[in-house]
Structure formats: C-alpha cells, structure tokens
C-alpha cells in the first residue's frame, strides 16, 4: 500500500520532477564548467601530446572498418593499443598532474554533491505540503525558505548516508571481484546486486525517517535522525518491503536508462528515483504516525493501513 500511494502522489505532483531535473542538470553543468576551467591550464599541453599519439583516430578508424565489414579493423585496434601504451608513458611522465587532477575532481565532486543534496529537503517539503493540505508550493521559493536547514542537513547527509552508500557500493564491487575469481561473472554480478540491494534497504530503513521528521514535525536536523528511527520502527515489515521494492525498481530503471542511452539517461533517471524514495519515506512516516494524507485532488487516505 505505501508504495502504491507513493506512486500515486508522485503522479499527482509530477511537474515538480521537471524542476528537480532542471536543478540537477544546472548544478552538474556549472560544476563541470568549473572543473574544466581548473583543469584546462594544467592539461593543455599534455592533451595535445595525447592527441598526437593518434589513439582516438585509430579507435574511430577501427569502428568504421568494423561497421564496413573490412577485416583490417584488427590492425587498427593493434595500432590503437600501441598508442595506448604511449599514452601510459605520457601519464607516467606527468604523474604529479594526474594526482592534481584526481584531487581537483574529488573536491569539485564533493561540493557538487553537497549542492545537489540541498534540494532533498525542499522536495520533501513540497510533497509534505501536498500530502497534508493539498497545496501547491513552488520549488524555488521553498528552496530558499528551507535553505538554513538544508545546509546543515546536506552536510550531515554527506558524512552519514552518502558514506554508507559509498561503502555498500565498494562492498558490492569487492564481492563481484572475489566471486569472479571462483566462478563466472554473471553469478558474481547477481550475488553482489542482491547483497547490495539488501544493504541499501537496511540503510534506507535506518535513515528513512530523517527527512520526514524534519519537514513534517519540524524537529531540528541533528535530533531528527533519532526521531525518524523511533517513528519508523513501529512498521518494520512494511518499511523493509517498501524500501526493497523502491530500491529494486529504482535500480532497474537507472540501469536501463543508463545502458540504453549511453549514460545520458542517468541524469533523468536519478532524480526520478530519488523522488520515488523520498515520497515513499514520507508515506511510511505518515502511516507510522497515523496521519491522514492526500494522494490526489479530493482523495484522502483516511486510516492509513500499512501492509506491504
């Protein structure tokens, strides 16, 4: 039921999706430009050296020949791999620049993730306003109204939930690597996906009540995490099932969107999945508290039942 109601709410307020996608795209674009401006002076000369090895020319040449059915594409690939060895040498000559690049990219991406996560709270607050009073709240105005709490929340989110997410992904990669040595890749991928989905579900259960406690009951950010756990543990089975569903569907959606659009669809799928997760958290929080909520115009869930 919570999952169905979350989908219903998300479809009722779907215009907010586009605003969030625009926000994500803007932030990513701005930080890409900043990273490019920092790295361009460092890499300007090295980049011409790299292009002079004709690596990219050989790669596109081999693809062209392969598509034409020309059997000499193998020699083009061999030339490309020869060029790749040259590139390796160039990088080894400039290893200080490589380290600087990695440090810069890490710093820029940390700031970018911080700025992206500022929108989480305002998104949940907009959905919260819709659920408790069927009112429409603009994204920009809500973003600024919640900015003070968002700043703190985003910082704490990065050192807790984001860290846990990164650890789970690292664990998944580790499991894949270890099992691949024993048997084949497909089995290893399956096992690691299932394990990480279960772990994601558990971490979502732990952190799921955090944002709803901030926006619904207006609890201060640092106390809201404990309050959220306290509230959500009234419905453990329902929470775990809903979060597993959401993460499973989200994983499939993100994987499909990323693979079939060569990576571009990730920017559309990721906000949509985040929104589905946040809406489910709110629905579960409302159910655990026993509040009534709107799922559509003039349609109220009176006695929230929570069974899967």
């Amino acid at each position: 039921m919570p999952f169905k109601n979350a989908c219903n709410i998300l479809l009722s307020r779907y215009s907010i999706t586009f605003k969030l996608i625009i926000y994500y795209t803007l932030v990513v674009a701005i930080f890409l430009v900043i990273a490019f401006c920092i790295l361009q002076p460092i890499w300007g000369e090295v980049w011409t050296e790299i292009t002079n090895t004709n690596f990219f020319a050989h790669i596109s040449d081999s693809i062209d020949k392969f598509l034409d059915g020309d059997s000499s594409y193998l020699t083009a690939i061999q030339e490309a791999s020869q060029a790749f060895i040259n590139i390796k040498e160039i990088l080894l000559h400039n290893n200080s620049k490589v380290i600087w690049t990695i440090v810069t990219l890490a710093l820029v991406s940390i700031v970018a993730v911080y700025v992206v996560n500022l929108s989480n709270l305002s998104y949940s607050d907009i959905i919260n306003h819709f659920m408790n009073s069927n009112s429409r709240y603009g994204f920009a105005s809500n973003f600024i109204a919640n900015l003070k709490q968002s700043a703190l929340y985003s910082l704490l989110y990065m050192v807790t939930k984001m860290l846990v997410n990164v650890l789970i992904m690292a664990l998944g990669a580790f499991i894949t690597y270890q099992i691949t040595k024993l048997t084949n890749v497909i089995l290893a991928l399956n096992v690691s996906i299932i394990v990480s989905l279960v772990l994601f579900t558990l971490s979502a259960f732990l952190f799921g009540g955090w944002v709803p406690a901030i926006v619904v009951d207006r609890i201060p950010v640092h106390k809201a995490l404990a309050a959220g756990i306290h509230t959500l543990k009234k419905l453990p089975i329902s929470c775990l099932m809903s979060f597993f569903m959401v993460h499973f569907i989200g994983f499939i959606a993100m994987a499909a969107a990323t693979v079939f659009t060569f990576g571009f669809g990730f920017f559309i799928a990721y906000p949509a999945v985040i929104m589905l997760v946040k809406t489910t958290e709110l629905v579960l929080y409302y159910s655990a508290k026993g509040y009534n909520y709107y799922v559509a115009d003039g349609k109220v869930v009176d006695k929230p039942v929570a069974n899967g």
């Binding site: 709240y137 603009g138 920009a140 105005s141 809500n142 600024i144 109204a145 900015l147 003070k148």
Partner: peptide, 13 residues
C-alpha cells in the same frame, strides 16, 4: 530575509 525571498518568488508569479 529567507521568508521574504520565498514570498517574493511565490507572489511575483
């Protein structure tokens, strides 16, 4: 200031 900016964004539309 934050409430006012928020109000302004809502009302000016």
């Amino acid at each position: 200031i934050r409430d006012s900016v928020s109000y302004s964004l809502r009302a000016s539309h």
